[in-house]
Design a protein around this nucleic acid. Structure first.
Lengths: 165, 165
DNA sequence: CTGATATCAGTACAACTGACATGA
DNA sequence: CTCATGTCAGTTTTACTGATATCA
């Protein structure tokens, strides 16, 4: 059974035999799988009335012990501070998050989920977990664990060990 | 050694113990790795004066035996026909691809790389292959093969076996 | 005629850049 | 004063929607 990337590598091999495509194949699979996950996952999220960015931002707040600064949110989502500001404005208007002034640093803001935001988020988390499980359903538990281990090594190598937040 | 996703799963476990995050962890790693790959890879491509879309479209033409239709390009890139039209216009203006009328179907177009496009592309392919290898450098050859096998299974499950083109 | 192909105009969305106000 | 934080306006980029011309 061959997939899109096997076909790609065979095509390269036939016209450019000296090219090493092993690593490129792994990279291509990861990016292509990510693209499919995104497209399908966005449908699930849209059914619940949120975008992916909103979901991830709210999830981050939900699983954190306390409120987070916009800087922390930006770092975690690997995006700019300005982008976070825009997302926060939308979520604030919806009443799902609130800004507070950081008592220990007047410049800074602290963002926390509201009760309503938490209520909205809860069923979405379950729906996404279900979606993710279904997506990986074909893999056995053992394969899933091996895959997780290898992806952990790769992620650590790509962005370094976790800085908590 | 724990990564971003391990931290995420620990956080979920502490506030929402009944949630199964194994599959979500794999999905999160894939999407996060893909994001990092994209960000870093875009830098490499920008140094060579092309965008990712342009590179992928030209690569697809380069490794195909003959010219391709816009429909085939759209399917391969998992995007709309209109988006392909815009990319083709830009590449055509640059002189890197050309449109021909499909002799066997007057509606259709056939796109092929020009000599210049091929010359521009060649060093970029090598640069990207080098980048990909460096990215996976930490993994041993054996790990890389196992990872490839598991991602193949996952990609096939997510989008089905390869339709050639 | 129906359905598919490719293109284009208009629209909408999302992120970035640079500037700015605030406070450590 | 210098540096960091968060916000905003303006710009740019990108893709989507719907309409259109063409042809199997």
């Amino acid at each position: 059974m061959s997939d899109y990337v096997d076909t790609m590598r065979q095509q390269w091999a036939s016209i450019y035999p000296e090219l090493d495509t092993e690593a490129a194949g792994v990279v291509a699979r990861i990016t292509r799988i990510a693209r499919m996950i995104q497209l399908r996952g966005d449908v699930v999220l849209a059914e619940h009335g949120v975008t992916r960015d909103e979901f991830e931002l709210m999830s981050l707040l939900a699983r954190s012990a306390g409120p987070l600064t916009p800087s922390a949110l930006a770092a975690s989502q690997i995006t700019s501070a300005a982008a976070v500001t825009k997302r926060l404005k939308k979520l604030d208007d919806a009443g799902w998050v609130r800004r507070e002034v950081n008592p220990s640093d007047g410049r800074g803001a602290l963002i926390h989920l509201t009760q309503e935001g938490s209520s909205v988020l809860r069923p979405i988390i379950d729906a996404v977990a279900k979606f993710d499980s279904a997506l990986l359903g074909e893999l056995t538990a053992n394969d899933s664990e091996q895959l997780a281990n290898q992806l952990r090594a790769l992620l650590t190598s790509v962005e370094g060990p976790a800085e908590n937040a």
